[in-house]
Design a protein around this nucleic acid. Sequence first.
DNA 1: TAGATTGTTAATCGATTAACAATC
DNA 2: TAGATTGTTAATCGATTAACAATC
Lengths: 211, 211
Amino acid sequence: MKDKTVPDSVIRRLPLYLRVLEELKAKGTEIVSSQQLEDRIGLKATQFRKDLTYFGEFGVRGVGYEVDDLLNRLKKICGLNEEKTAILIGAGHIGTALGNFNQVNNNCKVRIKAIFDKDEDKVGSTIGQIEIQHTDKLPQMIDELDPQIGIIAVPARAAHEITDILIENDMKVLLNFAPVHLDIPDDVYLQGVDLTLELQNLLYYSQNVVE
Amino acid sequence: MKDKTVPDSVIRRLPLYLRVLEELKAKGTEIVSSQQLEDRIGLKATQFRKDLTYFGEFGVRGVGYEVDDLLNRLKKICGLNEEKTAILIGAGHIGTALGNFNQVNNNCKVRIKAIFDKDEDKVGSTIGQIEIQHTDKLPQMIDELDPQIGIIAVPARAAHEITDILIENDMKVLLNFAPVHLDIPDDVYLQGVDLTLELQNLLYYSQNVVE
DNA sequence: TAGATTGTTAATCGATTAACAATC
DNA sequence: TAGATTGTTAATCGATTAACAATC
């Protein structure tokens, strides 16, 4: 099931499709056409159909897509049909937000099961229901929980060290919030979310107003 | 100074270049070649040079780039040479993290000057040094502060309403953290950061491990 | 059958990368 | 001058979109 044939850009759109399909299902819509999806998603109908071709056939020509069926099949493809275990390193502002957010947001399927911080003062207190543990316990806890996903929310200077620990302990899927470029082996998937860059990017547009 | 000729992809890389140049400056490096930057940024030297061509000539052939000069000129191009005023709507988990983060992170240049929430219980309390005001005060405060950037961190269901208010009050640059697609006029620049999508995207890779 | 909408191929568009002439 | 590295053009690559045959 390892499709390196499917482009990243396609993968990133799948959760978007799922979100809209969930909405339609909630409204009781049973059949939907790619054209109807176009407006709701803000993407071309053609793109939606093209994206689906990477995974098989999902619709009925002349009719459209059965919402519930499409939803279930796409969920499975995305891995959204079952919960995956994540650990969070760093209990600062962003880490805290993510931890709380994760407890609330039930349909996300990424379940944070442990939170770590280097600060002794934070160790022992909780975010959501989860007690913060010392970073020293990382290897031990990874072994215990066997988490699929590691979320890095430590300051930039600590990010390399933490990443090394995660990789040494065989973690393969990482989400990095630290504002640094991390070098990783080929068999690890790293996704970056850089809030500082997002904010800075706005500056350009606020001085060069769009068209 | 409105260059719709410069591709979005290039703009998004500029803050990345700045970050590395700042590091080099701090280390006392005076001259740097595109080749040396390649490893530090994780992008091709050619791409760096190509990106710069949209804005002029910055280096000396056979020598390289003068770090301080390049830094200053790029900062100006990005709008990073002066502070811009932002307002934040929504004081939930993400809003709180952003607010706190913004007070700490001085070199970001996006300065949150006001925070709003609809919840009467939150109104009056503070994030960082900033007092939370009721959403009703938005039009009045926009008029007073004349902010360039609006940050939307409200729940999905409230995002459309807030966005309409911001646009009605002439705001042109928006950052949206709510997990919804927002339809906006052509003359508004909207950038989306969707943490749920980022997390969900990881699920695919955690079941289809990379190569 | 006529109308509709999919799945897929082909055309277009844009972004990245390689190559190299210009020049310090 | 020889060596180095830029700025820029041309080639490549990949992603989006248009078009249409397949088919319900």
